[in-house]
Design a protein around this nucleic acid. Structure first.
Lengths: 139, 139
DNA sequence: GACTAATGACTCGTATACAAGATATATGGA
DNA sequence: TCCATATATCTTGTATACGAGTCATTAGTC
Protein backbone atom coordinates (compact mmCIF):
# COMPACT_ATOMS: atom_id res chain seq x y z
CA UNK A 1 0.00 0.00 0.00
CA UNK A 2 1.67 3.16 -1.23
CA UNK A 3 -0.76 5.89 -0.30
CA UNK A 4 -2.84 6.37 2.82
CA UNK A 5 -5.79 6.84 0.47
CA UNK A 6 -5.52 3.12 -0.34
CA UNK A 7 -5.95 2.13 3.30
CA UNK A 8 -9.46 0.79 3.86
CA UNK A 9 -9.51 1.88 7.50
CA UNK A 10 -8.65 5.44 6.53
CA UNK A 11 -11.01 5.68 3.56
CA UNK A 12 -14.10 4.22 5.20
CA UNK A 13 -13.42 6.34 8.27
CA UNK A 14 -13.33 9.53 6.24
CA UNK A 15 -16.41 8.58 4.22
CA UNK A 16 -18.31 7.89 7.44
CA UNK A 17 -17.03 11.20 8.80
CA UNK A 18 -18.47 13.14 5.84
CA UNK A 19 -21.84 11.39 6.08
CA UNK A 20 -21.89 11.93 9.84
CA UNK A 21 -21.20 15.62 9.34
CA UNK A 22 -24.17 15.96 7.02
CA UNK A 23 -26.38 13.99 9.42
CA UNK A 24 -25.30 16.22 12.31
CA UNK A 25 -26.17 19.33 10.33
CA UNK A 26 -29.62 18.05 9.49
CA UNK A 27 -30.34 16.92 13.05
CA UNK A 28 -28.84 19.94 14.81
CA UNK A 29 -31.99 22.01 14.24
CA UNK A 30 -33.81 19.47 16.43
CA UNK A 31 -31.13 19.61 19.11
CA UNK A 32 -30.02 15.99 18.80
CA UNK A 33 -26.96 14.15 17.52
CA UNK A 34 -26.98 11.17 15.11
CA UNK A 35 -26.53 8.57 17.85
CA UNK A 36 -29.19 10.26 19.99
CA UNK A 37 -31.52 10.08 16.99
CA UNK A 38 -30.80 6.36 16.67
CA UNK A 39 -31.70 5.73 20.30
CA UNK A 40 -34.89 7.78 20.10
CA UNK A 41 -35.91 5.95 16.92
CA UNK A 42 -35.41 2.44 18.29
CA UNK A 43 -37.01 3.37 21.58
CA UNK A 44 -39.89 5.13 19.88
CA UNK A 45 -40.82 1.91 18.14
CA UNK A 46 -40.70 -0.08 21.36
CA UNK A 47 -40.70 1.80 24.61
CA UNK A 48 -39.29 0.44 27.85
CA UNK A 49 -36.16 -1.25 26.55
CA UNK A 50 -33.15 -1.40 28.82
CA UNK A 51 -29.77 0.11 28.10
CA UNK A 52 -28.35 -3.35 27.51
CA UNK A 53 -31.04 -4.15 24.94
CA UNK A 54 -30.43 -0.87 23.14
CA UNK A 55 -26.70 -1.46 23.26
CA UNK A 56 -27.08 -4.85 21.59
CA UNK A 57 -29.25 -3.39 18.83
CA UNK A 58 -27.14 -0.29 18.24
CA UNK A 59 -23.71 -1.86 18.86
CA UNK A 60 -22.75 0.51 21.66
CA UNK A 61 -20.91 -0.39 24.83
CA UNK A 62 -22.37 0.43 28.20
CA UNK A 63 -19.96 3.26 28.94
CA UNK A 64 -20.99 5.16 25.83
CA UNK A 65 -24.65 4.35 26.42
CA UNK A 66 -24.63 5.85 29.91
CA UNK A 67 -23.32 9.16 28.62
CA UNK A 68 -25.72 9.43 25.69
CA UNK A 69 -28.71 8.53 27.87
CA UNK A 70 -27.58 11.13 30.42
CA UNK A 71 -27.66 13.85 27.75
CA UNK A 72 -30.97 12.71 26.29
CA UNK A 73 -32.46 12.77 29.76
CA UNK A 74 -30.99 16.21 30.43
CA UNK A 75 -32.62 17.38 27.19
CA UNK A 76 -35.96 16.07 28.43
CA UNK A 77 -36.37 13.68 25.49
CA UNK A 78 -36.17 10.44 27.44
CA UNK A 79 -36.65 9.12 30.98
CA UNK A 80 -35.13 6.36 33.08
CA UNK A 81 -37.42 4.15 35.14
CA UNK A 82 -36.14 1.39 37.39
CA UNK A 83 -37.45 -2.08 36.61
CA UNK A 84 -39.65 -3.45 39.40
CA UNK A 85 -38.50 -7.06 39.11
CA UNK A 86 -34.82 -6.58 38.40
CA UNK A 87 -33.45 -3.53 40.13
CA UNK A 88 -30.25 -3.57 38.07
CA UNK A 89 -32.23 -2.56 35.01
CA UNK A 90 -33.13 0.99 34.03
CA UNK A 91 -35.96 0.93 31.49
CA UNK A 92 -36.03 3.83 29.06
CA UNK A 93 -39.06 5.77 27.83
CA UNK A 94 -39.36 8.51 25.22
CA UNK A 95 -41.06 11.61 26.60
CA UNK A 96 -43.86 13.56 24.96
CA UNK A 97 -41.29 16.10 23.86
CA UNK A 98 -39.18 13.33 22.38
CA UNK A 99 -42.10 11.92 20.40
CA UNK A 100 -42.76 15.28 18.81
CA UNK A 101 -39.33 15.13 17.19
CA UNK A 102 -39.74 11.68 15.65
CA UNK A 103 -41.34 12.67 12.36
CA UNK A 104 -39.15 15.67 11.52
CA UNK A 105 -36.00 13.76 12.46
CA UNK A 106 -37.02 10.80 10.29
CA UNK A 107 -37.75 13.19 7.44
CA UNK A 108 -34.27 14.70 7.73
CA UNK A 109 -32.59 11.28 7.67
CA UNK A 110 -34.78 10.12 4.78
CA UNK A 111 -33.60 13.16 2.90
CA UNK A 112 -29.95 12.30 3.56
CA UNK A 113 -30.56 8.71 2.44
CA UNK A 114 -32.12 9.96 -0.78
CA UNK A 115 -29.25 12.35 -1.49
CA UNK A 116 -26.61 9.67 -1.00
CA UNK A 117 -28.51 6.92 -2.81
CA UNK A 118 -29.27 9.16 -5.75
CA UNK A 119 -25.63 10.09 -6.07
CA UNK A 120 -24.40 6.50 -5.96
CA UNK A 121 -26.89 5.42 -8.62
CA UNK A 122 -26.64 1.79 -9.69
CA UNK A 123 -23.74 1.18 -7.32
CA UNK A 124 -26.02 1.85 -4.38
CA UNK A 125 -27.22 -1.72 -3.97
CA UNK A 126 -23.74 -3.21 -3.94
CA UNK A 127 -22.55 -0.49 -1.60
CA UNK A 128 -25.33 -1.13 0.92
CA UNK A 129 -24.71 -4.83 0.83
CA UNK A 130 -21.00 -4.38 1.49
CA UNK A 131 -21.62 -1.91 4.31
CA UNK A 132 -24.04 -4.22 6.11
CA UNK A 133 -21.60 -7.07 5.75
CA UNK A 134 -18.79 -5.02 7.28
CA UNK A 135 -21.02 -3.63 10.02
CA UNK A 136 -21.91 -7.16 11.05
CA UNK A 137 -18.19 -7.81 11.34
CA UNK A 138 -18.18 -10.59 8.80
CA UNK A 139 -15.83 -8.83 6.43
CA UNK B 1 -37.24 4.72 6.64
CA UNK B 2 -38.68 2.17 9.03
CA UNK B 3 -35.62 0.74 10.73
CA UNK B 4 -32.47 2.43 11.97
CA UNK B 5 -30.56 -0.23 10.03
CA UNK B 6 -31.79 1.49 6.84
CA UNK B 7 -30.22 4.81 7.83
CA UNK B 8 -27.05 5.39 5.80
CA UNK B 9 -25.48 7.50 8.52
CA UNK B 10 -25.96 4.76 11.07
CA UNK B 11 -24.88 1.89 8.83
CA UNK B 12 -21.73 3.46 7.43
CA UNK B 13 -20.80 4.65 10.91
CA UNK B 14 -21.05 1.16 12.34
CA UNK B 15 -19.17 -0.39 9.41
CA UNK B 16 -16.38 2.14 9.88
CA UNK B 17 -16.42 1.40 13.61
CA UNK B 18 -15.83 -2.32 13.01
CA UNK B 19 -13.00 -1.69 10.54
CA UNK B 20 -11.46 0.86 12.91
CA UNK B 21 -11.58 -1.66 15.74
CA UNK B 22 -9.67 -4.20 13.68
CA UNK B 23 -7.14 -1.55 12.60
CA UNK B 24 -6.65 -0.50 16.24
CA UNK B 25 -5.99 -4.10 17.27
CA UNK B 26 -3.39 -4.59 14.55
CA UNK B 27 -1.63 -1.29 15.30
CA UNK B 28 -1.79 -1.52 19.09
CA UNK B 29 1.27 -3.78 19.22
CA UNK B 30 3.23 -0.87 17.74
CA UNK B 31 1.79 1.60 20.24
CA UNK B 32 -0.01 3.78 17.71
CA UNK B 33 -3.62 4.48 16.76
CA UNK B 34 -5.04 4.44 13.20
CA UNK B 35 -4.95 8.22 12.81
CA UNK B 36 -1.43 8.35 14.24
CA UNK B 37 -0.43 5.73 11.68
CA UNK B 38 -1.91 7.89 8.91
CA UNK B 39 0.12 10.91 10.00
CA UNK B 40 3.34 8.92 10.29
CA UNK B 41 2.77 7.40 6.85
CA UNK B 42 2.12 10.70 5.06
CA UNK B 43 4.97 12.39 6.88
CA UNK B 44 7.31 9.46 6.28
CA UNK B 45 6.91 9.94 2.54
CA UNK B 46 7.58 13.66 2.73
CA UNK B 47 9.13 15.00 5.89
CA UNK B 48 8.78 18.56 7.06
CA UNK B 49 5.14 19.18 6.22
CA UNK B 50 3.19 21.57 8.43
CA UNK B 51 0.14 20.69 10.46
CA UNK B 52 -2.02 22.62 8.01
CA UNK B 53 -0.66 20.62 5.07
CA UNK B 54 -1.25 17.35 6.88
CA UNK B 55 -4.72 18.49 7.86
CA UNK B 56 -5.61 19.19 4.24
CA UNK B 57 -4.37 15.78 3.12
CA UNK B 58 -5.92 13.82 5.98
CA UNK B 59 -9.11 15.88 6.36
CA UNK B 60 -8.52 16.79 9.99
CA UNK B 61 -9.20 20.12 11.62
CA UNK B 62 -6.45 21.95 13.47
CA UNK B 63 -7.89 21.25 16.92
CA UNK B 64 -7.72 17.49 16.39
CA UNK B 65 -4.33 17.77 14.74
CA UNK B 66 -2.78 19.55 17.72
CA UNK B 67 -3.84 16.76 20.09
CA UNK B 68 -2.68 13.89 17.89
CA UNK B 69 0.68 15.58 17.23
CA UNK B 70 1.08 16.14 20.97
CA UNK B 71 0.68 12.42 21.64
CA UNK B 72 2.96 11.39 18.76
CA UNK B 73 5.61 13.74 20.09
CA UNK B 74 5.16 12.41 23.61
CA UNK B 75 5.68 8.90 22.22
CA UNK B 76 8.92 10.06 20.60
CA UNK B 77 7.77 9.19 17.08
CA UNK B 78 7.68 12.72 15.70
CA UNK B 79 9.17 16.17 16.33
CA UNK B 80 8.02 19.74 15.88
CA UNK B 81 10.43 22.27 14.41
CA UNK B 82 9.57 25.93 13.93
CA UNK B 83 9.79 27.20 10.35
CA UNK B 84 12.56 29.78 9.90
CA UNK B 85 10.74 31.96 7.37
CA UNK B 86 7.17 31.80 8.72
CA UNK B 87 7.16 31.63 12.45
CA UNK B 88 3.49 30.62 12.57
CA UNK B 89 4.38 27.24 11.08
CA UNK B 90 5.53 24.16 12.96
CA UNK B 91 7.16 21.69 10.58
CA UNK B 92 6.89 18.03 11.51
CA UNK B 93 9.57 15.35 11.23
CA UNK B 94 9.42 11.62 11.86
CA UNK B 95 12.07 10.46 14.34
CA UNK B 96 14.38 7.50 13.93
CA UNK B 97 12.11 5.56 16.25
CA UNK B 98 9.11 6.51 14.14
CA UNK B 99 10.78 5.32 10.94
CA UNK B 100 11.45 1.91 12.45
CA UNK B 101 7.70 1.39 12.75
CA UNK B 102 6.85 2.23 9.14
CA UNK B 103 7.28 -1.20 7.58
CA UNK B 104 5.57 -3.30 10.26
CA UNK B 105 2.68 -0.81 10.45
CA UNK B 106 2.26 -0.87 6.67
CA UNK B 107 2.34 -4.66 6.73
CA UNK B 108 -0.43 -4.72 9.32
CA UNK B 109 -2.63 -2.38 7.31
CA UNK B 110 -1.91 -4.28 4.09
CA UNK B 111 -3.11 -7.38 5.86
CA UNK B 112 -6.34 -5.68 6.89
CA UNK B 113 -6.88 -4.45 3.35
CA UNK B 114 -6.42 -7.98 2.05
CA UNK B 115 -8.83 -9.46 4.55
CA UNK B 116 -11.56 -6.97 3.74
CA UNK B 117 -11.01 -7.01 -0.02
CA UNK B 118 -10.98 -10.80 -0.13
CA UNK B 119 -14.25 -10.93 1.77
CA UNK B 120 -15.99 -8.43 -0.48
CA UNK B 121 -14.91 -10.25 -3.62
CA UNK B 122 -16.19 -8.82 -6.86
CA UNK B 123 -18.06 -6.10 -5.02
CA UNK B 124 -14.79 -4.66 -3.82
CA UNK B 125 -14.22 -2.39 -6.79
CA UNK B 126 -17.66 -0.81 -6.63
CA UNK B 127 -17.39 -0.46 -2.86
CA UNK B 128 -14.05 1.35 -3.06
CA UNK B 129 -15.32 3.68 -5.73
CA UNK B 130 -18.38 4.60 -3.68
CA UNK B 131 -16.31 5.11 -0.53
CA UNK B 132 -13.89 7.47 -2.24
CA UNK B 133 -16.77 9.39 -3.73
CA UNK B 134 -18.38 9.83 -0.32
CA UNK B 135 -15.10 10.71 1.36
CA UNK B 136 -14.55 13.46 -1.15
CA UNK B 137 -17.94 14.76 -0.10
CA UNK B 138 -19.43 14.49 -3.57
CA UNK B 139 -22.13 12.07 -2.55
C1' DG C 1 4.63 52.50 7.26
C1' DA C 2 -0.11 51.63 9.04
C1' DC C 3 -4.19 49.12 8.83
C1' DT C 4 -6.96 45.22 7.73
C1' DA C 5 -7.58 40.58 6.40
C1' DA C 6 -5.96 36.00 6.35
C1' DT C 7 -3.45 32.19 8.22
C1' DG C 8 -1.29 28.52 11.50
C1' DA C 9 -1.26 26.69 15.82
C1' DC C 10 -3.35 26.31 19.95
C1' DT C 11 -7.12 26.21 23.82
C1' DC C 12 -11.66 25.10 25.62
C1' DG C 13 -16.08 22.78 25.83
C1' DT C 14 -18.89 19.02 24.22
C1' DA C 15 -19.89 14.38 22.17
C1' DT C 16 -18.89 9.76 20.83
C1' DA C 17 -15.97 5.35 21.53
C1' DC C 18 -13.62 2.00 24.30
C1' DA C 19 -10.69 -0.38 28.02
C1' DA C 20 -10.80 -1.35 32.69
C1' DG C 21 -12.82 -1.48 36.81
C1' DA C 22 -16.36 -0.51 40.59
C1' DT C 23 -21.00 -1.35 42.50
C1' DA C 24 -25.37 -3.35 43.10
C1' DT C 25 -28.25 -7.01 42.08
C1' DA C 26 -29.68 -11.56 40.45
C1' DT C 27 -29.00 -16.49 39.69
C1' DG C 28 -27.31 -21.05 40.23
C1' DG C 29 -25.59 -24.73 42.90
C1' DA C 30 -23.66 -26.80 47.30
C1' DT D 1 -28.64 -20.19 53.56
C1' DC D 2 -24.13 -19.26 51.60
C1' DC D 3 -21.15 -18.53 47.91
C1' DA D 4 -19.41 -18.09 43.27
C1' DT D 5 -20.73 -16.38 39.00
C1' DA D 6 -23.09 -13.52 35.89
C1' DT D 7 -25.36 -9.30 34.65
C1' DA D 8 -26.73 -4.11 34.29
C1' DT D 9 -25.25 0.12 35.10
C1' DC D 10 -22.13 3.44 36.06
C1' DT D 11 -17.29 5.62 36.61
C1' DT D 12 -12.68 6.90 35.14
C1' DG D 13 -9.08 7.72 31.89
C1' DT D 14 -7.65 8.16 27.10
C1' DA D 15 -8.32 9.22 22.06
C1' DT D 16 -10.56 11.17 18.17
C1' DA D 17 -13.75 14.91 16.16
C1' DC D 18 -15.55 19.52 15.81
C1' DG D 19 -17.35 24.37 16.86
C1' DA D 20 -15.77 28.56 18.58
C1' DG D 21 -12.54 31.49 19.96
C1' DT D 22 -7.50 33.28 21.10
C1' DC D 23 -2.92 34.68 19.83
C1' DA D 24 0.98 35.58 17.03
C1' DT D 25 2.48 36.28 12.55
C1' DT D 26 2.14 37.20 7.70
C1' DA D 27 0.13 39.18 3.44
C1' DG D 28 -2.29 42.59 0.98
C1' DT D 29 -3.76 47.29 0.37
C1' DC D 30 -3.71 51.98 0.73
Amino acid sequence: MERIEDCISFVIGKAAQQIARRAREKLAVHGVTPIQYAILKVLGQQDGQSGAELGARLVMDSATMTGVIDRLQASGLLERQADADDRRIQRLFVTEQGRLLQKPMDAAMDQLNDEVTRNLGEQGEVFWHALRRLGENRG
